[in-house]
Simulated assay, not measured.
Amino acid sequence: MAAVSVQVPPTDDIMASSTPFSPLAQSMVDERQSSIAAAATPAESLATVTTSVPRKRNVFDMFRLDGRVAVITGGARGLGYSMAEGLCAAGLSGIAILDLQTDLGEQACDQLHSEYGVSARFYRLDVRDEVAVQDAMDSVVRDLGRIDILVLSAGVADIVHAEDYSPAKFRRVIDINLNGSFVCAQAAGKHMIAAGRGGSVIFVGSMSGSIVNWPNPQSAYNASKAGVIHLMKSLSAEWAKYRIRCNSISPGYMDTPLNTTYEEAYFHEWKSRTPMNRLGQPEELAGCALWLASDASSYTTGSDILIDGGYTVL
């Protein structure tokens, strides 16, 4: 085959030239243009394209909550307040305490502001009142700018034998623990969805939602917490598309004011049935709450986390 001699015009003129090329000539022009373009590409640009090394992130930074706002129901004391402290220590810009106990709620906010420098607001609230709940969530957004984290800690418990349980008293436990959790999650969730930033909703369940802790008769409480856990799972599926994660913390027997109102005899039974042989301290939930509230748990949703000293493994 005879050799073909092709005069290649300057690079800038190749695409603009109206002179037709034979197929073979055109292929040689194209090859030449490619080699010229490659020669002009800086080596560092090639390295950027051909290598992909993700930047390492300090794991402790993933627990930071800087710029975020949390809402804690039942946060005036006990488990709710301990979890509020844990979140504030990680750099929250604002926190809202929603509770029925005005004096304790205002004291909690003063303490959080004094110790952590966080903007803290108290809103008196009965979680059973859906109109008041919506107004409270609207007020949080107006006063603190946003809602990123919701911790649903408001709850009550009765120790009453089933045959003696009045329907009204049974309904009260369900209404506060289960219905109240839904009403608050729904109201805060609407703001999270509208803002488009995602969020974290942390339900406070109980090991009583998975097992029947004996010997205390508490059918309403057990049923309510089983409902809370499954409500959490249901919302986690529905709201994943909005990047709203829903999880629950299920404590075992904790040393709280709520539990100290019961007969001393129960304490001995509770401790003896717990492998760690003690009640939990409220602050022992704070680390889990922080993990669930932060980016450290960004791929976790629909999970119920038991913190019970080993009670449920027996």
Rank of each mutant, 00 (worst) to 15 (best):
A3W: 15
V4M: 11
V4S: 13
P9R: 14
T11A: 14
D13G: 02
A16L: 14
S17F: 08
S18A: 15
P20E: 09
P23S: 06
A25E: 07
Q26E: 05
Q33K: 06
A39P: 00
E44I: 14
E44F: 12
A47Y: 11
T50W: 12
N58Y: 02
M62K: 12
M62Y: 10
M62I: 08
R64I: 05
R64H: 05
V69S: 04
V69W: 03
A70C: 03
G75T: 06
R77E: 09
R77G: 08
G80S: 10
G80V: 09
E85D: 08
G86E: 00
A90P: 12
G91W: 00
L92G: 10
I95V: 15
L100K: 11
Q101F: 05
Q107V: 03
C109K: 06
D110I: 04
Q111P: 00
Q111G: 00
L112F: 05
E115Y: 10
G117N: 04
F122E: 02
R124D: 05
L125M: 05
V127T: 10
D129S: 03
V131L: 12
V133F: 02
Q134I: 05
D135K: 05
D135T: 07
S139W: 07
V140G: 00
L144F: 06
R146D: 15
D148Y: 01
L152R: 11
L152E: 12
S153V: 02
A154H: 00
A154F: 01
A154G: 00
A154M: 02
G155R: 00
D158Y: 15
H161N: 09
H161T: 14
S166V: 01
P167L: 04
R171Q: 15
V173A: 11
D175K: 00
N177L: 03
N179E: 15
F182G: 01
A185Q: 06
Q186M: 11
G189F: 04
K190C: 12
A194C: 07
A195R: 02
G198D: 05
S200Y: 07
V204P: 00
G205V: 03
S206C: 05
G209E: 04
S210K: 14
P215W: 06
P215F: 08
Q218K: 12
S219C: 11
A220E: 07
A220C: 03
M232K: 07
M232H: 02
K233V: 06
W239T: 09
W239C: 04
A240D: 13
K241Y: 01
K241R: 09
Y242C: 12
R243Q: 10
C246Y: 01
Y253C: 09
D255A: 13
L258S: 06
N259A: 10
Y262S: 15
A265Q: 14
F267K: 15
E269V: 14
R273E: 11
R273S: 14
E284G: 04
A286Y: 07
G287K: 04
W291E: 01
L292F: 03
S297I: 06
T300W: 08
T300R: 03
G302H: 10
G310H: 03
Y311H: 13
V313W: 03
